[in-house]
Design a protein around this nucleic acid. Structure first.
Length: 413
RNA sequence: CGGGGUGUGGCGCAGUUGGCUAGCGCGCAUGGUUUGGGACCAUGAGGCCCUGGGUUCAAGUCCCAGCACCCCGACCA
């Protein structure tokens, strides 16, 4: 991508309403744009990050036999009346009235949609277990949207729902998903811990949260590095030994980046989701649900991975791998060699952002640091004297010269 | 939903006890000089001063109401 053509540009001015590191850096870097409190445009650069995260999530959900589908964002209120959550979740609904005075809500979650859906197809124990997921936009009228992408009123979420013949089967699957979640965070460059949680509007018990350690976190957790588990400090007051393995614990600030619930028959009952078991008896399907806020992940990664100059994207989610900078000035040869290298990388399908603007070196370096792509490659008169480029990683302070002819092999290797 | 703060070109801000043509920096456009860590000079474009009422000869400025955004609480992926 040519930076001169891209929608969204780096800015030195800090938005006056940027209330957190992720809001500030993502806005200045041209990744997101605020439309209203908790509602954002995901610009081309930001969407690429989100898509990379989505790809990782998809791979891990597919690995645990999740099947991707897509449910609607608009729900007839009747679906929610079935479970009574039209009342209990009333305060977070965005509602709308369609012609004929029919009421709809913008889905804050999808149990009320997925359970009747699955009930249309599941008849026998032979149809179970089964699990489906989607990447969808959720709408929740948060009393206080804030912190950039960390708490929105409209936000992206991967929600998966699993269906089982017994609690034992659910328990086993739950552990598989827990492991898959930890892989998602690890692949996104985050240190996450499993935290036992108290539940919420979804269920009374059996829930775990995934907390990512970062100073910007709102929660304080007590973590155990030995077994990767943690306790919320509100629940486990002055604990100094890990409950699970007895190892030492330490206090950390953390962001909740996902959670999983054992729903049991809470939804299968009101939604009439039954199956016929081996013994010929009609029984309720046992359910679990599993959520990761994918848009929140974008913000979380920035909170966890930045310095005073800007974002430092982990390679796995970076919007482009290479930031190619041409310091050509009025020298047509430098411009041409940089252009040549850009085309060569493009042809080899290297994800490259090419700063082809007619701007000073300082501005280009500053912008590159802000945007935070993993590898910065500079082509200038100085580097070309040695038939080379300067190659510098965002995570390191010093670069090195690399021969032009070695650039592509080094990237592909 | 309680308490506090802010609203002025695209962005960040200033604007005196109400007063005359609403400023500054960044960005943008044109020309020129520059080019390895946020370049410089010149010229120029761009403004329902959040909205609606009111007070006044006169409102960006004062009063009332509303809306939006931010902060602190209660709630959450």
């Amino acid at each position: 991508m040519r930076y001169s053509r891209m929608l969204g540009r780096a800015s030195y001015e800090v938005p006056h309403d940027a209330d957190s590191v992720n809001a500030k850096l993502l806005t200045q870097g041209g990744f997101i744009d605020k439309v209203a409190a908790g509602i954002y445009n995901h610009l081309p650069l930001g969407l690429r990050v989100l898509q990379n995260i989505n790809d990782i999530i998809r791979e891990e959900m597919n690995f645990v036999q999740g099947q991707e589908l897509l449910m609607p964002a608009l729900h007839p209120i009747e679906l929610w009346k079935q479970t009574g959550r039209d009342k209990t979740m009333d305060d977070i609904f965005y509602k709308t009235r369609a012609s004929g005075d029919r009421d709809f809500v913008f889905g804050p979650s999808h149990e009320e949609v997925v359970t009747p859906l699955v009930a249309k197809y599941v008849r026998s124990y032979k149809d179970l277990p089964m699990s489906v997921y989607q990447l969808q936009t959720k709408f929740r009228d948060e009393p206080r949207a804030k912190s950039g992408l960390l708490r929105g009123r409209e936000f992206g979420m991967k929600d998966m729902y699993s269906f089982h013949t017994s609690t034992e089967d659910l328990d086993a699957y739950y552990e598989e998903v827990k492991a898959a979640y930890l892989r998602v965070y690890e692949r996104c460059g985050l240190r996450a811990y499993v935290v036992k949680a108290a539940g919420g509007v979804f269920t009374d018990q059996y829930t775990h949260e995934f907390s990512v350690v970062t100073p910007a976190g709102e929660d304080t957790i007590l973590v155990c590095d030995a077994c990767k588990t943690a306790e919320n400090s509100e629940i486990a007051k002055s604990m100094d030994r890990c409950e699970t393995c007895g190892g030492p614990v330490k206090k950390e600030k953390a962001i909740e980046a996902g959670n999983i619930f054992k729903l049991g028959t809470k939804f299968s009952e009101p939604c009439n989701l039954h199956f016929t078991d081996k013994d010929g008896q009609r029984k309720l399907v046992v359910m679990g649900c599993y959520g990761i806020g994918n848009t929140r992940m974008v913000g979380t990664i920035v909170e966890a991975s930045h310095d005073d100059k800007g974002i430092i994207w982990p390679e796995s989610v970076a919007p482009y791998r290479v930031h190619l900078i041409a310091l050509a000035g009025k020298d047509p040869v430098v411009a041409q060699r940089a252009e040549q290298l850009y085309l060569e990388l493009l042809k080899a399908h290297v994800e490259v952002l090419f700063d082809d603007r007619d701007d000073s070196a300082g501005k280009k370096f500053t912008d590159a640091d802000l945007i935070g792509l993993p590898i910065r490659i500079v082509v200038s008169a100085r580097t070309l004297e040695k038939e080379s480029v300067e190659w510098k990683r965002r995570s390191e302070s010093e670069g090195a010269m690399v021969l032009l002819q070695d650039v592509l092999p080094k990237l592909i290797a």
